[in-house]
Design a binder for these strands. Structure first.
Lengths: 153, 153
DNA sequence: TTTGTTGCAAAACGTTTGCAGCCTC
DNA sequence: GAGGCTGCAAACGTTTTGCAACAAA
């Protein structure tokens, strides 16, 4: 897995993708990519839309359009973490991680685990070519497990 | 993990759950459970609604209500496999399995893998109590990978 | 110049909710 | 009989779509 750090590199990957698929290199698309690059953590279309208003004004339709391109170009990952709306996160710059989802409050936390990662990566299929994966562990977070004890968290 | 086979046993589990949570034992709820018990594979609320019309007529609202109870009672598992709508499957009668999802055609296949299962089950958290998990592997199925070669599958 | 892309608003989609009547407890 | 559950339809929130204007190629 290549470690892609700078925005310049990410931008190049996106440009290559757009060129290859004969999509246009619009300022909106790069503005969105730039904003995502600077954003830490999970986000959804609405959050991104609100953030964008500060810098480069784009419509929700364009947000969705661009998110789809970014997912297809493997620059971001789309999650459906149980809620109605899709959540996204950068696919570059950070290590593979999994998600803990509290079935009571919906809170999402990330964690990494080498044995799990290795076990999954070791798996190969004759009739399937894996590109990426998502592991979601559901359960109760500390707050919902022990409601009597006030955790600051 | 206890192997629950017959509908009688499943029904008992559900009855226990309803009793414990002071929910009423309505004919609609049992009719839905019975239909799910007989159904093979993944389904969603709409599919279930259509199937139900053949035997016991219930409204979509009741379908959703009952699905939530069944999820809560751990008799079925809810998945968000990338699409807009939730998919469900029985949590009884079959082994733990994971999902292969084709990013091109959306086809879903199941597979089992002991090393992966053990690695995940070995993981414990101080501030999180795992109840269940979902592993989704995304990629290209044989049909979408080699479109020239006709696979019978 | 061509045609993909944009913004806007309306539509679509799965799911949830409000409410009157019903039925379990 | 009280109150949870049902069916129905309307409401909801996210995502998609239709269309005219725009701009990248």
């Amino acid at each position: 897995m290549k470690e892609e750090g700078s925005y310049i590199e990410i931008k190049e990957v996106f440009t290559e993708y757009l060129k290859k698929h004969q999509h246009r290199k619009t300022p909106e698309r790069y503005a969105i990519l730039e904003r995502i690059f600077a954003y830490e953590g999970h986000f959804n279309a609405d959050i991104l839309y609100n953030i964008m208003q500060e810098s480069y004004r784009v419509s929700l339709a364009t947000i969705y359009n661009t998110l789809e391109l970014l997912v297809d170009s493997k620059l971001i990952i789309k999650h459906q973490l149980g809620s109605q709306f899709a959540q996204y996160e950068k696919a570059f710059g950070s290590n593979t991680h999994h998600h803990l989802i509290c079935t009571n409050c919906g809170r999402v936390k990330e964690f990494s685990d080498k044995p799990i990662r290795l076990a999954i990566q070791a798996k190969t299929f004759v009739h399937f070519e894996m590109s990426h994966y998502s592991l979601y562990l559901y359960g109760l977070c500390s707050k919902c497990k022990e409601p009597k004890k006030k955790s600051i968290d």
